[in-house]
Each structure stands twice: as structure tokens, then as C-alpha cells.
Design a protein around this nucleic acid. Sequence first.
DNA 1: TGTACATCAGTGAACGCGCGTTCACTGATGTAC
DNA 2: TGTACATCAGTGAACGCGCGTTCACTGATGTAC
Lengths: 199, 199
Amino acid sequence: MALTPKRDALRAKLLDVAEAQIAEGGIVALRARDLATQAGCALGAIYTVYGDLGDLALAVNRRTLTQMTQQMAVSVDGLEKEAPTDILITLSQAYLSYADDQRQRWRTLFSIGISPSDDEPGFFDAVAPLIALYEQPLARLMPANTSRTIARNARTLFAAVHGLVSLGLETRINVVNRGDLERMISRTIATLTDREAHL
Amino acid sequence: MALTPKRDALRAKLLDVAEAQIAEGGIVALRARDLATQAGCALGAIYTVYGDLGDLALAVNRRTLTQMTQQMAVSVDGLEKEAPTDILITLSQAYLSYADDQRQRWRTLFSIGISPSDDEPGFFDAVAPLIALYEQPLARLMPANTSRTIARNARTLFAAVHGLVSLGLETRINVVNRGDLERMISRTIATLTDREAHL
DNA sequence: TGTACATCAGTGAACGCGCGTTCACTGATGTAC
DNA sequence: TGTACATCAGTGAACGCGCGTTCACTGATGTAC
């Protein structure tokens, strides 16, 4: 609650350390004693700035989602004039890259969610900026449609890409290599958007 | 190792009980003492028929996957003469239904995988029968293509559906209800297969 | 069928571990005069 | 500036819990004669 610089520094330090732990070993690596040791504070100090470890994990997830969205945004920066389909493909490849590079962070996103409790705005609001990245090119592709339709198609597109990335990365499928996965994603986007454009 | 009827009965009983536990509370509900109590055996008995709880969890997952594949197969039974796209849609709706009905079992499938160790045939082989369900209609839809291409497209299709189901069911997205989700899946399949057919 | 012995499936108390969280305390910081 | 006191951030030993797994034992089952 307090916003003194020192408490904020401790809070930030713990968040950094928690993120590093999750990045290395996933959610099971988030252990109070390790965090305290690595943050250079006492065990009890964690509970003076976070309610419990769950809060801390959710804070990490919120940052992961923001960072992922940011990297996806950067990947299409300056491409506003390109064909919408190409922008959507680039966005999706950026998603794949993030998930692949930050596999544990990405996995943790889906293993514990984002919202602290059920009555919170929740995942959807937190994911809104990511979905918005898909909406912009889609709006150009299907200008006659309502924003509601565009929003639904954006979610569909992202969900399909997410599925390809999930099954491609999560399990040890020895048949789909990274290159194949990239092509599957590009083709799926191209196919889906081509049809959208014609409707 | 032993295959006496009694040991097999214990093994089967434990598998049933483990499945019930996972169905109710997910992988975290798989606790040795609860299993022993519910199976009516001693704690140590578990370790006389399974190496450890991980083995038991994997056995449950294998059965879940078999059951899910079976239910999907049943959903398209007798539809062999229908339009391939309709069959693919029916299969995918059956996947959604299973995931929705057996949410914890389905979730556990992806939270711990299927293969006991990294050098095992693994997930892909275990999923092969499920993918095969998608290959049959696809083969009719694109008869000119190689079985390799068909196999790849089957995986792509299933992965896309899986993504829609995952993001639709996993998180508390208050905007996508079950009916919307069903429509998103049908439309995605229709769009993807329409394009495949023309290539 | 009956008896003595061998085997081994199944038992459950005990072990060892790691963890999240608490709370009586300490000592640094701030305030008042 | 110096002193006395109050506040409260931060400490870390201790608590309590639940768990997976083991292993010395028991008693049921099977075998031999």
C-alpha cells in the first residue's frame, strides 16, 4: 500500500527476481526462500509488499503479457502500408518467436492465468491490447464489417495461431520443426484472411 | 510386471480411482493417500503396481486421449458420405464437447503430457489416431495431394481448433460464450478447407 | 486330506523433505522539542 | 545540533502442513510330500 521509494524498490526487485525464476524453471520454481535469497532480503519481507506468492506470480504474468504484446507491436512497426495479411503473418511469427524464446514465461501465462480473482476484469481485458494488434490490419481487410465482427475475427485468428504454436512447441512432436511450424502459421493466416476479405 | 488377475484388478482399480480424482480436481488432486483410501488398499500397494504417481498420471492421460478420440470417432460414425467439410466440423465440435465436459481431464492432458520419458515414442504417436480422423475427410477433399501434405494439413486444422477451444474454455473470457465458440470453429474449418480444396 | 514350509502380495507407520506463511522481535528512520 | 521517544520496515526462527516414498513386517496363498 505504502509508496515509499524503498518499498517500491523492494517490490520491483522481488518482481524482477520472480520473473527470472519463472523464466528459468516455470511456476514451480517460484519459491519464497529462493526469492528472498536472490533479492537479498529476509523471507518475511516478501509478505510486506505482496500478499502472497500468488500475487507475485500474477504480477509476473501481467508483465509477461505486456512484454509479449510490446514485442509483437515492434515487429510490425513501420509496416502499416504493407498488405494486411503480411502484417498479420508477421505478428503471428512474432508470437511464435516470443513463445519459443521465453517458453517458461509463456507457459506460465496459461498455467495460472492473469487475473487475481474471478470478479476481476480478468484475462480478456489484459489480452485486449494484443487482440487490438490483429484488429487493425483486419479492419483494412474487411472495411465493410462492423467492429464487432472484426473483433471476433481477430480473436479467432489469434486463437488459431495460438493453437498451432501450442501444439508445435508444447509437446515433443518430432515431426514438426520450427520451419514447418512457421509455414503452417503463414499458410493458415493467409487462408483465413483471404476468405474473410471475400465475405 | 506380474500379470496375475488380482494384481491386474488392483492396477485397474487404481487407474479408475486416479481418473476419477483427476476428473474432479485435476492433476493436483492426484494424491497417494486419497487413491489408497478410495481404492481400498494400503498406501504402499500403489507402488507394487505402479512405479510412482507419475506413471499413474500418464496412464490416466493415455486413457483420456483414447476415450476422447473414441468419442470423436463416434460423432462422425455413419457420416462417411457427407461433405468432408461437414465431417471435419462435426469432429471439431466433438472435440470442443469433450474438452468442455471433461475439462479437468482434458487440461491434465496438456499439463503433463503423455509419454513417460523423452526417449519414448511420445505424444505424437499417441495423438496419431486422432489426427487420422482428420486425414480421412481431408484426403477426399484434396485427392491430388500427397499423404504427407494431407497429414500436415490435418495437424494444422486440429491445432487451429485446439487453439480456439483452449482460449475459449481455459480462461474466463466473458465475451465468448459456447455458441459463439461453436460458430468460430465451424467458420474456421469451413474457411480453411475451402481454400485447401482449391489449391 | 492334512501338515509344514516357502513365497510374495499387500500393509501402514515412519521417514524425510520442502514448502508457504507467521509473528515476536530488532534496529533503522523519522519526529518533537 | 542533540536527545528522547515513536514508528514501522524488515528479520528469520519456528510453525504447521501435506506430501511421495520406503521397508520391516504380516498374513494370505501356493507347493511338496
